[in-house]
Design a protein around this nucleic acid. Structure first.
Lengths: 221, 221
DNA sequence: ACCTGAACACCGTTCAAGT
DNA sequence: ACCTGAACACCGTTCAAGT
C-alpha cells in the first residue's frame, strides 16, 4: 500500500496488481457497482480486457483485493485513553473507512472478511478488550458485536441522509394507515432522524459500550 | 399475503404479481442470487420473458416486492412479558426470517427498507420501547440500533458456520504472522466461534438490551 | 512471459408486433 | 388487455493465438 518508490514516476504506464486495484476502487467510488466491469476497468487502464486475467484469476479475486486494499488504507488510531475511548476511536475509523467507499461494502458479503487488512483491525480490537479485562471468548464475541454493528450501520445507514431520501422516507411513513401504524405515524420525525447518520451511529455505539462495560463489571475478575 | 381464497385452486395456471414473487423467492432460496434472472424466472413460470414486464416495470421493482413479501411472511410474536422479553422475541423473529432467506438480505441494500411488511416490525418495536418508558427519539434510535445489529448480523454472520467455513477461517488466522497478530493467533478458537451463529447473535443482543436498559434507568422520568 | 481479439453463453430491457 | 420473439447493448470467461 505505501510502497511508492521515490523518483520512479511510472505515470501509470506499467501494469500491476496494485494499479489495477486502485483503478477499480476509483471506478467503484465514482460510478458505482454496476459500472465496475472487467471490460470497463480494462479500458480505463488502456489494456485489453483479457490482460486483467493475467493478474487476477476471476473478478471475485479482484474484488477481494479491492476490499482488502480499502480496508488497509489508513493507519489505526493510536492507543490512548480508556478501553472505551480506544474502542470508540477504532470503530469510528472503521465506519469512516466504510462510508468513504459506500459501494464497496455491498460488494463482498457472501464470504467472511479474512484479509490481513481487515484482521489488523480485529487484532487491535481484541487487544483493547483483553487489556480491559475480558477473557478470550468475551473479547472475541465483543469485538464481533462491535464490528457487526459498525459495518452493518455503514452498509445500510451510512452517510448522512440526503434531503431527497428523507423526503422519500417521510412520504412512505405518512402514507401508512394510522390505525395499523399508530406509533410510527405519530413519530415520523424521530423515525426519519434515526434512519442514518453519525448521531445515530454514535448513539448505538454508546449503548453497545455500556452493555459491554456492564458485562465487565459483572466479571468475577 | 394471506389472501388465498378458499376453493379456487388456480394450480399455478394464472399469472399474478403474487405468483411471480413466490416463484422468484423459491429460485432465490434454492439456487442463489446469480440464478435469479428475468429469463430464468419466466421459464420457471412457463411464460415468455417479456410477460414479466407487464407485472413489474423493472427487475428492481420485482426484487422490492420479493423483499417485502418475505418480510411479511410470518405473524409477529405475541406481546407477552417484560419489554426486554418482547424485544428479544421480536428481533429473534427478524433474524430467523432473514436467515431463512439468506440470499434475499444481500439483495436490496442500496435503498432503505420502507415497505409495509418491514415497517410493521418497526411499529411493534417502537410500541414496545415507548411502553417501556423511552421517549419518541430514544425509541426510534433504540429500534434502529436493534434492527441494524440484527439485520447486519443476519447479513454477514447468518446461519451456523459450516465446518468448511470454520476450517477456512482457522486457516486464514493460523497463517498470520504472530509478531504482527499476537492476540488473534493465540485466540483462534474464540475468534472462529464468534464468527457466526445463534450463540454469537444472542450474546450481542443481550449486551444491546443491557445498554438500552441502562439508558432507561438514567431517565429523569 | 506477457498480452490479446474472437467467440460463447449469458444478462436486462426496448420495440414492434401478435392475439 | 395481455402476451411475446427479435434485437440491442451489455456481461464474465475460455480458448487459441500473437509478440
Amino acid at each position: 500500500v505505501s510502497v511508492s518508490s521515490g523518483a520512479r514516476e511510472d505515470a501509470g504506464r506499467t501494469l500491476s496488481r496494485e494499479r489495477i486495484v486502485r483503478t477499480a476502487l476509483e471506478i467503484l467510488d465514482r460510478d458505482g457497482i454496476d459500472e465496475l466491469s472487467m471490460r470497463r476497468l480494462a479500458e480505463a487502464l488502456g489494456v485489453g480486457t483479457m490482460t486483467l486475467y493475467g493478474y487476477f484469476r476471476t473478478k471475485g479475486e479482484l474484488l477481494d483485493a479491492v476490499a482488502d486494499s480499502a480496508a488497509g488504507e489508513e493507519p489505526l488510531p493510536p492507543r490512548r485513553g480508556s478501553w472505551r475511548t480506544q474502542l470508540r476511536a477504532l470503530m469510528q475509523k472503521v465506519r469512516r473507512n466504510a462510508v468513504r467507499h459506500p459501494n464497496l461494502a455491498a460488494l463482498r458479503m457472501d464470504r467472511p472478511l479474512l484479509s490481513p487488512g481487515v484482521l489488523r483491525v480485529a487484532e487491535r480490537g481484541y487487544e483493547i478488550l483483553q487489556d480491559a479485562g475480558f477473557d478470550d471468548v468475551e473479547a472475541a464475541r465483543g469485538y464481533r458485536l462491535l464490528f457487526t454493528y459498525t459495518f452493518g450501520s455503514a452498509l445500510f445507514s451510512g452517510r448522512e441522509p440526503s434531503e431527497q431520501l428523507k423526503r422519500e422516507a417521510r412520504a412512505a411513513l405518512v402514507q401508512l394507515p394510522p390505525e395499523e401504524y399508530p406509533v410510527l405515524t405519530a413519530a415520523t420525525d424521530a423515525a426519519v432522524e434515526a434512519m442514518a447518520g453519525d448521531a445515530q451511529f454514535d448513539f448505538g455505539l454508546e449503548r453497545l459500550l455500556d452493555g459491554l462495560e456492564l458485562l465487565l463489571d459483572a466479571q468475577p475478575a
